[in-house]
Computed example of a mutant assay.
Amino acid sequence: MRHTEKDQQVLAELPDILTSWFTEHEERLQSCGITGDIQQSPADGRTKTSAWMMLERDDHIGALIVWSSGEAELEYGDVVSGQLQQRHLDLHTFPDLLDVIESLLEWFRTKGGQSPGA
């Protein structure tokens, strides 16, 4: 599938959008017992930039890595059992990114505790 110039611009902004989402929702996540961090790749001229969000509550962890190409990796697991789920995704739009974030938050909701919402 070929992307239009507008599509390419949206994809290039996905790492920044993830960073903004985390910054805007960090307090709400913390109020639900979820701690986290967000990092971005350095602005050193690389062709693909990325951002990665790490979330943790009790013995459960989750990570979402998003590249400016639209590629994404979603990982979540239980530290005690050692079970880890991994999914490779191809994001095309801002709503695609929100859907992935919501699926990660839903996983945390199913593991108990308050719902942080999206």
Rank of each mutant, 00 (worst) to 15 (best):
5 E>N: 08
6 K>G: 09
8 Q>V: 15
9 Q>D: 11
11 L>H: 07
12 A>E: 13
15 P>N: 01
15 P>R: 01
18 L>K: 11
19 T>F: 03
22 F>N: 02
24 E>F: 11
26 E>Y: 02
27 E>Y: 10
28 R>M: 14
32 C>K: 00
32 C>G: 03
33 G>Y: 06
35 T>Q: 14
36 G>L: 05
39 Q>D: 05
42 P>C: 00
42 P>I: 04
43 A>F: 09
44 D>Q: 12
44 D>F: 08
45 G>L: 02
45 G>H: 05
46 R>Y: 05
49 T>R: 05
50 S>Q: 06
50 S>I: 06
50 S>D: 05
50 S>W: 08
52 W>G: 04
53 M>Y: 05
53 M>C: 13
53 M>F: 05
54 M>A: 12
57 R>D: 01
57 R>W: 03
58 D>S: 13
58 D>M: 11
59 D>G: 08
61 I>G: 09
63 A>G: 10
65 I>N: 10
66 V>P: 05
66 V>W: 01
69 S>Q: 04
71 E>T: 04
72 A>Q: 07
72 A>W: 03
72 A>I: 00
74 L>T: 07
76 Y>V: 07
76 Y>H: 12
77 G>C: 06
78 D>K: 02
78 D>I: 08
78 D>M: 08
81 S>H: 06
82 G>L: 11
82 G>W: 06
85 Q>A: 11
85 Q>Y: 11
86 Q>A: 13
87 R>T: 14
88 H>N: 15
89 L>P: 10
89 L>C: 10
92 H>N: 11
92 H>K: 14
92 H>P: 01
92 H>F: 08
95 P>C: 00
95 P>Q: 08
96 D>W: 07
96 D>Y: 03
97 L>K: 06
99 D>W: 09
99 D>I: 07
100 V>D: 07
101 I>D: 00
104 L>H: 04
104 L>C: 05
105 L>E: 09
105 L>T: 15
106 E>K: 14
108 F>D: 01
108 F>T: 01
110 T>Y: 12
111 K>I: 04
111 K>Y: 09
111 K>R: 15
112 G>C: 08
114 Q>T: 07
115 S>H: 11
115 S>F: 06
